[in-house]
């Protein structure tokens, strides 16, 4: 996360590095003003350089493509699949550059362990439409942070409408027919004519408990959580740094040494901590967030913790005032380990 933050900060710092010197800036506006005073004319010059370059490109393409076409024709028949190996178009062939990619699925491994291969089964109307498998060409593991891309061509037969995707992963190279696959279950998605790119994150802790999370329509900025800075809010920064799922009540009490309010709701227990001197929430609802109080600085942060049956932190969220921009933010960690961070006020 720190590295991600560094890259973002670095990019921001590049913003004003290439400035236009003041004298040149002045010269340009003088030029603009002079030209604006002239009567407007349209130029229609033939860009002969452009056309000549285009002709060269076309010629080069013809030279390169012709041998390939003849080469492919001489091998017709050799690339046919063995009969009966699959029932229906199980694996897309190597991408043919001449055919348009219809749908793209990106799956990022965000699991804390390596994967050997991924098989993505796509169903429509109950039928298995395609089930490509992908792995690194050199057999190296798919590490945390690596992205695997599945491309489906028109010939694969995916159509706009509802679909179900099911991912299977293997952790090791299979030996002598034994291949242990793990699956996070099925995800329902909608394929649209307009939106043809899907992004998924593989998240969780172990092969017994992991999820395929669809982030295609979510705001990646909200989900790509950066490190909260201490100058923005010391309490939120501390919670992000020191909290994790699975903490016990004793561990939480050791981290936060102030009083908390506790409540039972929906059969589970949750706690609320209010970080503010002499602060008492004006809301009747234990689960209510005092957005106004946060914005006015009466309370610096409100922390909510959900507990599971074993009295371990199941999920938590902290609402806080960002001192740098004056907005109230929500930072939360869900049961599946996913983090989310965004402003909830203007």
């Amino acid at each position: 996360m720190r590295q991600y933050d560094d890259v973002n900060q670095g990019l921001k710092s590049l913003n004003q590095k290439f400035r236009l010197p003041e004298n040149e800036q002045r010269e340009i506006i003088e030029d603009i003003n002079r030209k604006m005073d002239l009567p407007m004319t349209t130029r229609n010059r033939v860009q002969w350089k452009y056309y000549a370059a285009t002709a060269v490109v076309v010629l080069l393409l013809v030279i390169v493509a012709l041998p390939l076409i003849f080469d492919n024709q001489s091998f017709v028949g050799e690339s046919e699949q063995p009969q009966g190996s699959f029932e229906r178009n199980p694996t897309p062939p190597v991408t043919d550059d001449t055919e348009e990619v219809e749908y793209t699925f990106l799956i990022e491994n965000k699991l804390p362990f390596d994967i050997y291969s991924m098989e993505l089964r796509v169903y429509q109307k109950g039928d298995l439409i395609a089930s490509p498998t992908s792995m690194n060409a050199d057999g190296s593991p798919i590490k945390q942070g690596d992205i695997i891309e599945f491309e489906f061509l028109e010939m694969d037969g995916l159509e706009a409408g509802s679909a179900v995707v099911e991912l299977f992963v293997t952790l090791e190279k299979p030996s002598k027919g034994s291949e242990k696959q793990f699956s996070p279950g099925k995800n329902s998605i909608m394929l649209f004519e307009e939106y043809k790119d899907f992004t998924f994150w593989l998240i969780g802790e172990s092969v017994d408990k992991f999820y395929l999370f669809d982030v295609s329509e979510a705001d990646l900025e909200i989900l790509n959580v950066e490190q909260i800075k201490e100058e923005d809010n010391e309490i939120a920064a501390m919670i992000q740094e020191r909290f994790s799922l699975g903490l016990t009540k004793e561990e939480v009490r050791a981290i936060i040494e102030i009083k908390y309010a506790s409540s039972l709701a929906d059969g589970g227990e949750f706690w609320r901590y209010d970080f503010g001197e002499n602060y008492a929430s004006p809301l009747d609802d234990m689960a209510g967030i005092d957005t106004e109080g946060l914005k006015e600085g009466k309370v610096q942060a409100q922390l909510f913790i959900d507990w599971d049956d074993e009295n371990k932190a199941k999920s938590y969220s902290v609402f806080y005032l960002n001192h740098s921009d004056g907005k109230v933010y929500d930072y939360r960690v869900f049961e599946n380990g996913l983090e989310k961070h965004h402003a909830i006020t203007e």
Partner: peptide, 22 residues
């Protein structure tokens, strides 16, 4: 219109130059 262009130039020319430069 000319004045408006001048105002916009003073407000955004550096940002736009910076973008084109990148």
């Amino acid at each position: 219109r000319k004045e408006q262009i001048n105002d916009w130039y003073h407000a955004y020319s550096n940002d736009i130059y910076n973008y084109i430069h990148f």
